[in-house]
Amino acid sequence: MFRRLKPQGQKIQIFFDDQEIEAIEGENLAAALLAADVTHFRSNPVSKQPRAPYCMMGACFECLVEIDGQSKQACMIEATVGLKVGTLKDISGVDDE
């Protein structure tokens, strides 16, 4: 769905939900995930529907992922060697009394 043109720079490995993904060092993380055919970045916490990057400029928060136990915008982060990225924890269960 998304294709990387001639890769410039060092190829590295990163992880998305423990799956190994190839990326280019220093490239935009959201771009790296899209180029690796990741289509489902997070689920909307209200509707549970899949979401993926919409604006790529830090405004829409659709590309939120978890890094080091924190939610972060993938479009605002660069890929680094061995970066561990995950989908946000499911919040269902908060509302289950």
Partner: peptide
Amino acid sequence: TLPGVMTAGAAQILLKSSGVVPEQ
């Protein structure tokens, strides 16, 4: 809100920042 729908600007940023292009 479907994955795969993004702004034209977003596609341009993908291209500028990472040389990544959408297909079809």
